[in-house]
Design a protein around this nucleic acid. Sequence first.
DNA 1: TAGCCTTGCACAAACGTTTTCACAATATGG
DNA 2: CCATATTGTGAAAACGTTTGTGCAAGGCTA
Lengths: 345, 345
Amino acid sequence: MSDRSRKTIKDVAAAAGVSIGTASRALNRTGRVSEATVIRVTKAAQKLGYQPDAIAQSLRLKSTKVVGMLVTDLSNPFFAGVIRAAEKRLQQAGYALLVGNTDNEKARERFLIDLFQRRRVDGLIAGPCESEDAEMLEELDRGGLPVIGFDRDFGAGQSGLHVDHRRAAFEATRHLLNLGHERIALLSSSSTLSPGRERIAGYAAALEERGIALNNALIRAHKSSMEFVASEALSLMSLRPAPTAFLCLGTRMLAGTLQGLRQNGLSVPDDVSVLTVGDTDLARLYAPSISAVTWDLESVGQMLAELMLRRLEEGESESEPRRIMIPTQFIDRESCAPPGHRPET
Amino acid sequence: MSDRSRKTIKDVAAAAGVSIGTASRALNRTGRVSEATVIRVTKAAQKLGYQPDAIAQSLRLKSTKVVGMLVTDLSNPFFAGVIRAAEKRLQQAGYALLVGNTDNEKARERFLIDLFQRRRVDGLIAGPCESEDAEMLEELDRGGLPVIGFDRDFGAGQSGLHVDHRRAAFEATRHLLNLGHERIALLSSSSTLSPGRERIAGYAAALEERGIALNNALIRAHKSSMEFVASEALSLMSLRPAPTAFLCLGTRMLAGTLQGLRQNGLSVPDDVSVLTVGDTDLARLYAPSISAVTWDLESVGQMLAELMLRRLEEGESESEPRRIMIPTQFIDRESCAPPGHRPET
DNA sequence: TAGCCTTGCACAAACGTTTTCACAATATGG
DNA sequence: CCATATTGTGAAAACGTTTGTGCAAGGCTA
C-alpha cells in the first residue's frame, strides 16, 4: 500500500515463482504459458498492485502510445472542442494526447515539433499555423511519423481534414446577397491561415457568382484586439455608400463588430445585418440572435482521431492518404434582414 | 536527412570517435570531459541531427518531465485558459502537460489517475471533480507523487490553489443587497463541487450579514442543459413574490437565464437584475452588459505551474504545503439596478 | 521403443540513455 | 626523480520491459 518503491515485473515474477519472461507472457497472454501459471502470475500482480511501466514498455516496443497535437491556441473554443473530442477517441484506443500551443508563431511550432519528436510521439496532428510550410511536415511523414493535417495546407501525400470554410463563407455571403445586400463588409482575423484564406475565397466566389465586383475597401483582414475590430467596424460604417451587412469571420470579429455597432447606436438588423462564420454562445444569445454558419466540433475531433488511428494501426501499408471534408450548416436567426429595412421610425 | 533510422548517442559517439559514455558526458557537460572532445562530440551530434531519446532518458533518470492534469472538461473556457497558462509555464521549465477529462465522473478520474501513474508523470494537478475524495490523492502525495489541488478539497498535508469563490459570491450578493434587492434567485450548476459549494456559502453569508433568511425556493443548484436553466429561470420568476435579481454561478447558468428572461419579454435590468460569477464574452457584450465577478485565468494557471515546479525542484524536502488563494474582482456593468426600477413605461 | 512434435519455462539480449568505477596518462609536489 | 593528485576516457551496469532462443519433459505416431 504505502510501500515506497513501485512494484516491477520482477517482483511479480518472484512472488509467482517464475522468471520475468514468463511473467510478462502471462500478463500479456502472449506466447506459450500454461493456464495455471497465468492465474498464479495474475494473482500475484493483483496482490502487489503491479502497474506495468509505460516508459519501459515504450522503450522496448518503440511506441509511446502518445500522439501530439499542434494548435495555435488551446483556449480558443473552436480548438478546445476539437481537442476534447480527439482526446476522448484516442483514449479509447489507448493513446494519450499531448497538446502544444504554437501561439501562431513559426518558431514555437518548430520548437514543439522538435519536442514531440524527442518525446517520441507516435503521430502528430497539426492544426493551422502561420506560414504553414508543408515541407517540414511532409518530411516528417515520409520519415515515418504519421502526420494528420487539420485545416492546414499540406503536401500531396498526406492525410488530413478540413472544415469546409470556403463553402461556409460562400453560403453565408449568398444568404446576404439573396436578401438584397450588395455592399457586404468582411472582417477576418487572418488571411494567411488556411481557414481565413478559404473563407475569403468563398466570399469572393459568392460575389462573383452574382457579378458583383470585389471591393477591397470593404475587406479588413488582420488579427487584432476586440477594441480595434470595433473601431474597424465603425470606420467601415462611415464609408459612403456604407455597407449594409457585416460578415464576421471568427468569434473575436463578431464580438468586436457588435461592440462597435452598439457603441454607435446602430441596431441589428434594422441598420445593418450581421452574420458570423463560427457559432458561439454570444451569437446564439445576443439580442438579436446572430445568424451563423456552424460545424460540429466533436465530429471534427473524432474524425481527426480516427484518421490518426487508421494510420497508426495500418502499420507500414501507408495506403493512399485519406482526406476528409467536414460540412457546415447555416443557421438562420434574427440578425439578417433586407437592406434599408427599418420597420418603423 | 531522409535517413530512415533515428540517430542514437551511439552514432554520435562513433562519429566523434569516443565511447558513448563520454559522448553523453560531453553533450550534457557533466563530469570530466576535455573541452576538445566536447566540441568534437557536439559537432558530430549536430551533423547527424541527433536528438536524445526522452523515453530512454526517462527510464534511466526516473523522471518523465511530464505533469498530468485532471479537469472535468478541458473545453470549458475557465479551464482552457488555466490549462493554457499552466502549459506555457511548465514548458519553460522543460515539462510537458498531459491533460485528461474526467467528465466529472469518479470512475473516469480513477481511470485517468491510474493512466497517469502508469505513464509515470512527475506530478499531478487535480481540478475539482465529483466526490472529491481527498484520501486517494493524499495517498499518492505521500507515496511520492507531488499533487497540487485546484479548486478542490484535499488533505491537510497537500499544496493547492483556490480561486476565492466564496468571496466572489459574497461580494456579488452584497452588491445586489446594497441596491436594495432582498429576493435574490441563485442558479448554480453544482452544489457538490468545491467552487459551487463555496459560492453558495458566500451567497448565504452575505444574506446572513444583512439578517435576511435563506429562502430555499430561490435556489436552484443542479447541472443541466441551457434550455432547462431557461425554464428554471422562468419558474423562478413566476414565484410570488418574484425574485428581483438573479445571481448566476457559471457561464451556462447565465446563458440559460438570459435566454429564459428574453423569451418571456422580461428586460434587464428594468424587470430584473442579473449578475454573474465568472466573466465571459457573453457577459461583456450582451445588451445590456452583465455585471460579473472575474478572476485572472492566466495567473491561476501560472501559479498552479509554479506550485508544481517548486514541489518538483525541491526534491525530497517537501517542506510545508503551500496554499494560494486567488482573489476575484467585481466588475460593475449595466445589468443591475434597484428593484422596481422601470424608468419609463 | 525410438524418433519427433508439442508444451512450458528460464535465460539473455535488446531498446537508448546516464553514471559509477576503474584505469591510464598526465600534471603536481617535495 | 619518485610519489601522489588530477584529468580524461572506456567498459559496464542499471532503468523495466518484451521477445527470440534453447532446453527439458512429456505425449504422440510408427
